[in-house]
């Protein structure tokens, strides 16, 4: 194959995943958290596509497409939640949503 080997792609994917994870853990706005989640999912997708190329098996691409569809659904619901929250004048702050405490 031309260009870098699979391992390079995997390292990019893992760095992307870690960036996304950091974003989820560090940011307080739920919007940004959702965006970071997207980054994590994309990192996983990249890994899947890389392996598909490596193994010569297109199932990895199928999986990646499914992940994309699921991510889209999840974003719909997540954004719906955020909109509902803002409509109820709730603070858009992940740290302030502590009803499950105790």
């Amino acid at each position: 194959m031309m260009g870098p080997e699979v391992t390079w792609y995997l390292i990019v994917a893992s760095i992307l995943f870690t960036i996304g994870a950091l974003g989820v853990l560090v940011r307080r706005s739920p919007l940004i958290v959702l965006l970071s989640l997207e980054i994590m999912l994309n990192g996983a997708n990249l890994a899947l596509i890389a392996f598909a190329r490596h193994q010569g098996d297109a199932d990895g691409q199928i999986f990646a497409l499914t992940v994309m569809a699921v991510a889209a659904s999840e974003v719909v619901v997540g954004l719906g939640l955020i909109v509902a929250m803002s409509r109820r004048r709730l603070p858009l702050d992940v740290d302030r949503m502590t009803t499950l405490r105790g």
Binding site: A21, V24, L25, R28, V94, D95, M97, T98, T99, L100, R101, G102
Partner: peptide, 17 residues
Amino acid sequence: STLIQTGYLRAYALALM
């Protein structure tokens, strides 16, 4: 045991990670 249940989303996420 209830001390773990802080209600903070980020704490839970950290635990996951």
